[in-house]
Amino acid sequence: MSLNSEALPKSQEVTAAPEASNQPWEPKIVGFACNWCTYAGADLAGLSRLQYPPSIRLIRVPCSGRTNPQFIIRAFQRGADGVLVAGCHPGDCHYSTGNYFTRRRFLLMQRLLEYMGIDPARFQARWISGSEGPKFQQVVTQMTEDIKALGPNRKMRDVE
């Protein structure tokens, strides 16, 4: 189950053009973005043409409180190098209290993952509001850099 850092993640091997093998390794970050704030913030980053590394794949959820810790475990098991959970700032949740529960749950989850031996830089939770396009850009860029330094995630994977 070893993965040397020059080999590409599976999807790229199947679909990338031959030239793609010259690309340096790009981490695969799965992001859970709340529809009302973070997803809107990401859209705003797009509207403002702010550039960031193509490492992140956002999954839209109605509220960050919808994100089940089991999704995080599954993401790592299926080969994610990093996971981001992002939602509205506490007090601004479109559904009034969802992100207060998110906050508690993911504080525990992050510590539990760290306890299991996963580097805390691989799992991040952030508050990104709908007007914070630059913050979204900065979070993704920083996370990509941090995870690039750590290399591909070999822990918890159940796939090649």
Binding site: A16, A17, E19, A20, Q23, E26, A42, D43, A45, G46, L47, R49, L50, Q51, Y52, P53, P54, L58, Q137
Partner: peptide, 13 residues
């Protein structure tokens, strides 16, 4: 918003 506009420098990826 989340692909072509933000990854304009790297068409392949």
């Amino acid at each position: 918003e989340q692909c072509s506009w933000v990854h304009a420098n790297n068409k392949e990826l």
